[in-house]
Design a protein around this nucleic acid. Structure first.
Lengths: 339, 339
DNA sequence: TTGCTTTGGGAAACCGCTTTCTTGTCGCTA
DNA sequence: TAGCGACAAGAAAGCGGTTTCCCAAAGCAA
């Protein structure tokens, strides 16, 4: 690419070394047995001319890029960042690069962006796609090889890597239950979020397993502001008997705690609060926030593993859901005297 | 790319429409005057066959990719994430995609990664490169067109987009000075960080401008843990007369505040604390954290502006340093009774 | 020595486009 | 009616590699 003045090509090298292009190519790719003397000459010429093969030309003939694209709804989401980092590092080890495509939460653009990205890459990672399930099924069909992250897609021949939110939430409810809590408020995430739906399924399962628990659902969102704004509803629930809160994620939990602190509600004495994701800040909140830890980088690495296998046509490792790990900290405590 | 079974090519379209490849290409690119009837036929064939031109083949002949790479020391750094997001959205508007290359803070790999990335792209963004200045100068020469972010490079023909840390720190010192603080502790960042050096220059300038101020430098780092761990040194400085702290960034400030809270030091009554970067959490800390706000997305957008101009060979907008905006919050207050 | 199989390496085809070059057709003027 | 210029569209030449195909030389057995 680019406007460097006439980069040296394989033809230049061939001429300089007095051999054919084919031989240079063979040397370059370590093909067949080439006369050691020719290898020498070619390598010398390459070094002298500072020759670097054009990846584009190679792509054209090889039909592959050594590039994959990650399509993501919002690059600023810490979860996706961690996944991107893990993916990009793992891919780099295999000589692949990662292209990012931010759909800016624009559901209608998702498909077009994915298709376009696929044209430039050997494979795709669809990160938490927002589109309706039917469309998604058609899309993954069209853009294979592809790995879907953080969105379940039952009965489809596509590896899915994600978080077992159902299990995570159940574990979290168990934790609170063990602390004596029976009335729990769930401060929910964006209504369109698939992972929010998973969390709610977890709540439903937990209810079935523990009939003595009651859960109040309060709508909120996914950001600090949303948690902050949900404080009113939470306090209502509290007055109504809730002793613990599960927030959609840590940001919501932190925002909520901030507001509760302002209002003089003491956590965990008056109210236990738990988040999800275990963002770095969770351990540094006051009080430190109980959360479910999600291995972000690991998810990225696992994603690459599957994508790579798919690209190489090797055996496809199957889907995997990472079970979040409970990080019990100070924001949840045994139920005690109520304010 | 990819293993789809023999994608349709321009030749297929030409055959199907009964015209030459050249005509199809002309239709595709809106070139010259083509018989409207042929345009019709070609477009019909394209639609019917579901033809999409190969970006790779186009790249080969056009000598460009419509892709740029962003080389970054650590994708998990919130600052770089914001820049990446801004860059990628702005570039997308012009039909460009962004490739990410994480050097994992590995200084020795930076050059190789940058050169390799440049081979696949039309241009490069070097984000806070860690390498020594001499090498960097040689590198930017080699990989042009390039824009450097968050690292000053005086006297070089390369656009630099960044943050005016010097000015930001001076403004912050002014803020504290206005509140009556004269003894300030600076909890510094990583020794190799160029932006840390800039901040220190800001401190030096502030001292010159305000001879009545004294600043104690304490080494720390860039993360929550580093701030947490720096509490001992900060308390020493406090006992020694410091009434305010400027932290390398918000994470350090937040980590420090967490520890101080644990130790019963009250902010801002006993000690004023200010951070830098204005991460989302800053406004939600307890007390809310005074910080210098940096327009992350805007930096990304500005970077694209320059890169695009460079690629197109248009007039190069020159370097720009964004002056951080003071977000005065509750963690800094007028000097008062000391604990 | 002859004849056959290896084997190394060059010529050329090809990947899927864009663009130049060339040809053929049409319309116009003399 | 012949002749010239415009112009639309096809043929073909790249872009920079890889790979097939083929030939010449070498190695070996008979």
């Amino acid at each position: 690419m680019g406007q460097r003045s006439r980069a040296t090509t394989i033809a230049d090298v061939a001429a300089h070394a007095g051999v054919s292009q084919a031989s240079v190519s063979r040397v370059l790719n370590g093909r067949a047995s080439v006369d050691p003397e020719i290898v020498q000459r070619v390598q010398a010429s390459i070094a002298e001319l500072g020759y670097r093969p054009s990846p584009t030309a190679r792509s054209l003939v090889n039909g592959r890029n050594n590039t994959v694209a990650m399509v993501v709804p919002d690059l600023e989401n810490p979860l996706f960042q961690g996944i991107l980092k893990g993916l990009s590092l793992a891919a780099a080890r295999d000589g692949y690069r990662v292209l990012v495509a931010d759909t800016a939460e624009n559901v209608d653009d998702e498909e077009a962006i994915a298709l376009e990205a696929r044209l430039r890459c050997d494979a795709l990672v669809l990160c938490a796609p927002r589109m309706p399930e039917a469309e998604l099924r058609a899309l993954v069909e069209a853009v294979a090889p592809v790995v879907v992250v953080n969105r379940l897609l039952p009965g489809v021949e596509v590896p899915v890597v994600g978080v077992d939110y159902v299990r995570g939430i159940r574990d979290l409810v168990d934790h609170l239950h063990a602390l004596g809590h029976r009335r729990i408020a769930y401060v929910g995430g964006p209504p369109t979020s698939a992972s929010n739906a998973e969390r709610r399924r977890g709540l439903a399962e937990a209810l079935t397993a523990r009939p003595d628990v009651r859960i109040d659902e309060l709508p909120a969102g996914s950001r600090l502001e949303d948690g902050y704004a949900a404080s009113g509803a939470v306090l209502d629930a509290h007055r109504d008997g809730c002793t613990a809160v599960i927030a959609f994620n840590d940001l919501v939990a932190l925002g909520l705690m901030t507001r509760l602190h302002e209002l003089g509600v003491e956590v965990p004495r008056d109210l236990s609060i738990a988040g999800f994701d275990d963002v770095p800040m969770a351990g540094f909140a006051t009080p430190s926030l109980t959360s479910m830890s999600v291995p972000r980088g690991e998810i990225g690495a696992q994603t690459w593993l599957r994508l790579h296998a798919l690209i190489e046509g090797g055996p496809v490792e199957h889907s995997v859901l990472h079970r979040p790990r409970l990080e019990a900290r100070d924001s949840t405590a045994a139920i005690g005297v109520r304010a």
